[in-house]
Simulated scan of single mutants.
Amino acid sequence: MKILTFGQTGQLARALKRVQPKTAELIQLSHQQVDITQPQLIDEALAFYRPDIIINCAAYTDVEKAQINPVAAMQINALAVEYMAKAASNYGIKLIQLSTDYVFDGRSSTPYSVTQKPSTINAYGQSKLLAEETLLSYQSALFCIVRTSWLYHHSGNNFVTTMLKLMTQSHNQQTIGSSADNPIKVVNDQTGSPTMVDDFARFLWKLCSQKQWSAIYHWSNAGKCTWYEFAQEIKTQGIALGLLPQSIYLQPITSEQYASIVNRPAFSVLDTRLSHTLAIPKPWQQQLAQCLNELVLSKV
């Protein structure tokens, strides 16, 4: 089984490499190798490598910047996927398109199923939804969409590394978070499911081994929390492992109090039950503990 990823340096591409099965061949192409906004370069890459499956790890993921520059987000997140779909269809290559909980508007109070109609509220979500609609228009058994949420690892740029950095800075006599008068402020009215990226990568490898695909999958770690509750758990576990100082001050705030130009879904938990035949999600708190334990071991 030969897998090709567009995208090499993002946290998911790196995770796919970390948990790669020994029986699989993995080819990862960086933006420098293939500019996915150029359809001819995509076609040439597929003609040269002839993979069995493409996993599209290339994405414009900065939600704030996407709101400011929606054209760039659309080029990478939507138009490039149209080019991939056309080339993959021509060569008979399977394609896994990665998508997001942000294709939903967050007005639900129950987890979103794969059959629910998306309705997004920001430019990033719009670009990812357009990519989904492009793939679904092919009605091809060769293509599938996999939505996930709140990906993190102990390396790279994500919520966990950001929180660990802020909480560590407070220990180094920085002002933020070091006292109750100047706490680390974290949004407490957006609810989702934190997902350890290596777990998601393992799910994708299992999906690659399936002979037949559904059109859409949802996969995340089990359970739900707000960003503030996520930060509290990072704090608690980090202190227990000796990664963080004892005195860290967190303050819950509303989305309105958080200075952002982006509307984010208030509730974006995904219903993953249809994916449980491939992998049973573990509780997000348990997987955060695994992630932080790996961080401790990496420092030894």
Rank of each mutant, 00 (worst) to 15 (best):
S268G: 13
N69K: 10
Q232D: 11
Y217F: 12
S99L: 10
H153F: 13
N221E: 08
T226C: 10
C57T: 07
L288I: 13
W219D: 00
W227S: 08
S260E: 10
N90S: 04
L16Q: 02
D52M: 00
E25Y: 12
I53E: 10
T236E: 06
H171L: 06
P70D: 09
N293S: 07
I54F: 14
N221P: 01
D105Q: 12
L98I: 09
S178T: 05
V146R: 04
P70I: 13
K211W: 07
V71G: 07
L164P: 04
L241T: 11
F104L: 05
Q287E: 12
Q32H: 04
Y228D: 02
L95I: 06
I216W: 03
K224M: 13
V71S: 10
G106A: 07
P245T: 00
H276A: 00
R50V: 15
Q246N: 14
F267E: 06
A72T: 11
E132R: 02
I234G: 00
F230L: 15
A13M: 09
A123I: 02
N157G: 11
D62C: 11
K282E: 11
L270S: 09
V186G: 08
K2E: 13
N77R: 04
S193F: 01
H154M: 02
W227K: 13
V103T: 06
T236A: 05
I280M: 13
Q210I: 09
A13K: 00
F230G: 07
H153S: 15
A85H: 07
I55Q: 02
P283W: 06
N90M: 04
Q11D: 06
T175R: 14
P283R: 09
K185L: 10
A131H: 05
M1T: 14
T195Y: 02
G156E: 03
V300P: 03
F104D: 00
L136Y: 01
T277D: 15
S193N: 01
Q97I: 05
Y249S: 04
L204E: 02
T134E: 08
W219C: 01
C57N: 05
I93K: 05
I261W: 01
N69T: 07
C57S: 07
I96K: 09
L4M: 14
N293V: 02
S298K: 02
P51R: 00
S113K: 11
A66S: 08
T115S: 05
L164N: 06
L142Y: 07
G223F: 05
I145D: 03
T175M: 14
V187Y: 00
V19R: 04
H218N: 01
P70H: 10
D199H: 10
D189M: 03
I55R: 01
Q237T: 12
Q8S: 13
P283S: 11
P51N: 00
R273G: 03
S119L: 14
K117D: 07
I93Q: 08
H154D: 05
V81C: 12
P183N: 06
V296I: 15
T175W: 13
Q190M: 08
S179F: 14
V197R: 02
D105P: 14
I261F: 06
R202N: 09
N172P: 07
